[in-house]
Design a protein around this nucleic acid. Structure first.
Length: 791
DNA sequence: GCTAGCTGTCATCGG
DNA sequence: TACCGATGACAGCTA
């Protein structure tokens, strides 16, 4: 479960990164110009010590790695933190001007094989069939990947026939299996007929301005009309037909015709696959990425001849492509998708060209013979694809393993995985996610300059709650947290910050958790220990009670009791400044604390005893806390206070008074008890106060960042307004010249523009008046020597 | 030895 | 008026 959890977490992160990349890309120019180095530094936050994301990241680090909460794997910790920070910075529009951070989800061959062999159908990168196969328990890998190549999650037929055409055999054999139950053979034939009709109607290269990337030798094939494509594509999505299969195929030659690019760059969407391709090309991923995602290789320098039946890992040695080239590729893809020419019509023409045959077993994502052109054809227009496109594009991130995760009861958060539902569309089908982060496409022909995609809605999905709460709550649900513990975690999420006041192990430092534990202990309940999270040394309440009884009332520092309360999961991951983890309170703390056996030992003398030193070696931070907290403990012990300091501090006033009343205490004892209570509460208050201070600083920092971002945005808008006004003035001037050229006075003489000017009334009237008067009385409508002239 | 950071404690104020 | 929380200030401790 932890393993799967890790996959899910990382997959979610990468998923959001990729989606964010789509949105950020569109408006990247804005931020390229606004990303000043200081601002960038602030955004990126080199001083991560004051970021509140650490404990969340650590939280994420905890899940799935099976490490002790106190033994933070720093590499994973910082890696996760970096990822999360950058994810969040994506929504904050913090794309550096000279830096492109990209991630590529990667699934190695073994994972694919195992996934396939486990009858957990892997989700192909752009093969909607693979998605549908999720719902088809009887779908075998061979059925998806082609004969004899169960490992291949990438169907070459689909690759070659993407965007408009599909091999007939695939249509018949896989169409229904892919969940395309309602797409009958007649429908397919009809679509094909329509497709051919469009071809015959002459929708050719000039219509779609096919990209010059296409090989000259390839036959160009007209694409369907966009409107029809839109409807068909959506229907195709509904039917589970992969857009990849909608690649047009020349009706005569049977060759795969790549989709055509619009003449200008309409930067509206970017297919997931293309994102992967570009990201991979930019940052070749290695085996580091543990998230099992389809292997995608860049089409550049990739041929189908190599390892057709095996998935290839991403070529790490491949040098990153030029960034400019990458962006050009992205733009080209966007242009392509803006055309929405990706038809889902099933073309009877078989794309079983030799190349396709060669890539019959090409692993999914390994682009075959058509290289770039084929790649482009595989793109999916997120616009047209609407919601299904999301599910179509994104599911590759969610592997069967994730499905297994999602199959487990997880009541919280959006289920991003394909889940165990029969159709991936059911996951995203409730809402049009595409519409969330992509502007509605009114017409298939996108205006190049009128589609700035601001990913604000989607950015909301990337907010902290998505990444933080999902990690925590899901972890709580998955790892056997009790409902009370889960609610405790939720309460923590509701708090202003993750800082736990209970970070200190001082007995006089109770917190909500401690209080709750105290209550639980008082009710003789046996709360579950947190040993499952890896923390050791926690005892049950009964044990704590026993220890307390054995130890006596004085020096109520109960390792079992208090640590159960204090060193909770909450405490650990609620620390906002885990970068400075130096107080490992309970690390390697044995179950039977020395204090239990010799409760008087730590408090017997002010000097360190041998045993004390030994305990210091085991738990140095504990020593600090012991020393700091033992003063009142020692005092209480010296005064023979018959109950623990924790009770003194944490009990409500009524109970505290009752407790005091039950014992016949001297004035000195009462005074000490009240001092202990006062100091203990004040200590908590001080911690609260400091926490608030820190939160205030962080909020201010964030506010500064937001204000700077708003300032940059407003400046950009101002520049746009100025430019618009300038254009309007120019247009007005030209119109004035036209008017003056046509105006004549009573004698038929023209009005020289140098002497007259046009004055525009508020009611739309336009009058001509001498410039001298116009300048002298700019606000008064001249009555003389004017001729009203309605425009 | 100096310094920064953390923590506990006291005094004070306000609810 | 007692209680409690918040907060500034200070001191002690540790790295």
């Amino acid at each position: 479960m932890l393993y799967l959890k890790k996959y899910f977490t990382e997959g979610l992160i990468q998923f959001t990164i990729l989606l964010s990349l789509i949105g950020v890309r569109v408006d990247v120019d804005t931020y390229l110009s606004n990303q000043l180095p200081p601002l960038r530094e602030i955004i990126l936050g080199p001083s991560s010590a004051y970021t509140q994301t650490q404990f969340h990241n650590l939280r994420n680090t905890l899940d799935g790695y099976g490490i002790h909460p106190k033994s933070v794997d720093l590499d994973q910790f910082f890696t996760t933190r970096r990822l999360l920070n950058q994810v969040r910075q994506l929504d904050r529009l913090s794309v550096p001007s000279t830096e492109l951070n990209a991630w590529l989800v990667h699934r190695d061959q073994e994972t694919v094989v195992s996934a396939a062999s486990q009858s957990s159908p892997s989700i192909t990168l752009d093969n909607g069939a693979g998605l549908e196969d999720l719902s088809s328990p009887d779908a075998t890998p061979a059925m998806r990947g082609g004969g004899g190549a169960p490992e291949s999650t990438y169907n070459p037929n689909a690759a070659d026939s993407s965007l408009g055409a599909v091999a007939p055999e695939r249509t018949q054999e896989q169409g229904n299996r892919d969940g395309n139950d309602d797409l009958t053979k007649e429908d397919i034939d009809l679509i094909d007929i329509l497709w051919r009709q469009d071809i015959d109607l002459g929708a050719g290269r000039e219509v779609f301005n096919y990209s010059n990337r296409q090989k000259d030798s390839e036959e160009e094939k007209p694409c369907l009309e966009e409107s029809k494509e839109g409807s068909e594509a959506q229907e195709s999505w509904r039917n589970g037909v992969n857009l990849q299969e909608a690649q047009p195929v020349d009706g005569e030659t049977g060759e795969s015709i790549p989709e055509q690019l619009p003449p200008t760059g309409s930067q509206t969407s970017l297919s997931f696959q293309e994102c992967l391709r570009l990201l991979e090309a930019t940052f070749p991923f290695g085996e580091e990425s543990e998230f099992p995602t389809p292997v995608v290789t860049p089409e550049i320098g990739t041929s189908n001849e190599e390892a057709p039946s095996t998935s290839r890992a991403l070529p790490q040695a491949e040098p990153p492509l030029d960034l400019e080239q990458q962006w050009q590729d992205i733009m080209a893809i966007m242009e392509l998708q803006a055309m929405e020419v990706n038809s889902n019509s099933v073309n009877a023409s078989s794309s079983s060209s030799p190349e396709a045959a060669a890539s019959e077993s090409t692993p999914m994502g390994t682009f075959g013979p058509s290289t770039r052109s084929t790649l482009i054809n595989q793109d999916v227009s997120l616009h047209q694809a609407s919601l299904p496109s999301c599910s179509q594009d994104f599911p590759p991130l969610f592997t069967p393993q994730l499905d297994a995760i999602s199959s487990s009861p997880r009541p919280t958060m959006l289920r991003l995985s394909s889940s165990n539902s029969s159709n991936i569309n059911s996951t995203f089908g409730a809402t049009n996610l595409t519409g969330l982060f992509l502007p509605p496409l009114t017409n298939g022909t996108n205006n190049v300059t009128s589609t700035p995609v601001l990913p604000d809605p989607f950015s909301t999905l990337l907010e902290d709650s998505m990444l933080d709460e999902i990690s925590l709550l899901d972890l709580a649900m998955e790892e056997g947290f009790s409902q009370a513990q889960t609610s405790q975690l939720e309460d923590e999420l509701d708090s202003d910050s993750g800082l736990s006041l209970d970070s200190s192990h001082s007995p006089a430092s109770p917190s909500s958790s401690e209080t709750s534990c105290s209550s639980a202990a008082s009710s003789s309940s046996t709360s579950a220990t947190f040993s499952e999270e890896g923390a050791v040394g926690y005892s049950t309440d009964s044990e704590a009670a026993t220890a307390e009884t054995d130890e006596g009332a004085v020096g109520g520092y109960q390792p079992g009791y208090s640590k159960l309360c204090r060193m909770s999961y909450q405490e650990f991951h609620s620390l906002p400044q885990l970068d400075n983890i130096s107080h490992n309170h309970t690390y390697n703390l044995p179950l039977s604390s020395p204090f239990s056996d010799h409760p008087e030992l730590p408090f017997s003398t002010g000097k360190k005893t041998v045993r004390d030193k030994q305990s210091c070696k085991l738990q140095p931070p504990q020593d600090l806390l012991d020393k700091q907290s033992s003063r009142d403990e020692r005092r209480a012990r010296a005064m023979k206070i018959p109950f623990s300091n924790e009770k003194i501090i944490n009990l409500p006033v009524e109970e505290f008074n009752e407790l005091i009343a039950k014992h016949h205490l001297s004035e000195a004892q009462l005074a000490l008890i009240r001092d202990i209570r006062r100091r203990g509460k004040n200590k908590m208050a001080a911690q609260n106060c400091r926490k608030r201070k820190l939160d205030t600083i962080l909020n201010l920092e964030q506010g500064v960042h937001d204000l700077r971002r708003d300032k940059a945005r407003l400046q950009k808008e101002q520049m746009e307004c100025i430019s618009s006004i300038r254009q309007m003035k120019q247009k007005m001037q030209s119109l004035s010249q036209v008017v003056f050229a046509q105006l004549r006075d009573e004698e038929g003489r023209p009005y020289p523009p140098s002497e007259y000017s046009l004055q525009y009334g508020a009611d739309g009237s336009v009058v001509i008046m001498p410039r001298s008067i116009a300048t002298a009385q700019p606000n008064r409508k001249p009555e003389k020597k004017q001729k009203d002239k309605k425009k």
